[in-house]
Structure formats: structure tokens, C-alpha cells
Amino acid sequence: MSSTPTRTNPFARIENEGLDDFKPKSTPIPVSRTQDKQPTDIAQAITRAEEKTKLVKLAENEGFTINNFDEKPIPARIAQDAKTFLKTVRIHVSDWNRFQLWCHENGYTHRKGFQVLAASLPPKKA
């Protein structure tokens, strides 16, 4: 055996071994999802938050600063044109996030976005 910490050799017999001995971990339910918050849940949440802060600080100290999953808020757009007429309509937007992103990408306010969508609807048949 070499003195270097070389990893173990995959023996042929392992090929026939199953993987049933690997079980999913039992993870406590996050505090926010529990119905009744117990003191232990809160303590656990505090520990997790502290751990996360330490982790971020350590990563930053080591130069690991990029955060790819940071939530980037989309700034609200204020309509500059005159207000449209008042009309109460019931509109169902099946995917609000997609609509919001589409408005953002096209530089529309939500009002303008609705107008563009409404204009693209096929005329109602008589």
C-alpha cells in the first residue's frame, strides 16, 4: 500500500452489492412550515441562520463572492402616459411571474402590458 492517501480500490465484488444501505437523511422540517412553533424549532432556525452567516463570511474571505441565486428585484415602472379610462374587468393571468418578466424585458408597465395583450386578442365573433 502506498503511503499517499490514495483512495480505495473498487473491488470487483462490489459490483454485485446493492445500494439499499444508503437511506435518505431525516431532516427537521423548516420552522416556517411548522404549524406550532416550538422553542426548539426557533432555536434551530437561529442556529441555521448563524451557520449561514458564518458560511457566507468564510466564502467571501476566500474570494467566493459570486452569488448566482441572489434574488434580483425587478424595479417597478411608473406609467408616463395619461391614465386610461376606468373599467372593471376580471383578468386571469395564469403565470404572473412570466407576465412580469415579459413586461420588464419589453419595458412595459403592467398597464401597458395588459393593453398590448388585450390588443393582440382575436376579435370576438358576433
Binding site: 451557520e51 458560511l55 457566507v56 468564510l58 466564502a59 467571501e60 476566500e62 474570494g63 467566493f64 463572492t65 459570486i66 452569488n67 448566482n68 441565486f69
Partner: peptide, 13 residues
């Protein structure tokens, strides 16, 4: 990602 990102630190933890 192959960069100095915080996801790596989080995953390692």
C-alpha cells in the same frame, strides 16, 4: 458553476 461562487460554499457545508 466553475467560478468562485457562494453556491459552492453552501453545497460543501
Amino acid at each position: 458553476q466553475g467560478s468562485a461562487n457562494q453556491e459552492l460554499a453552501a453545497a460543501m457545508s
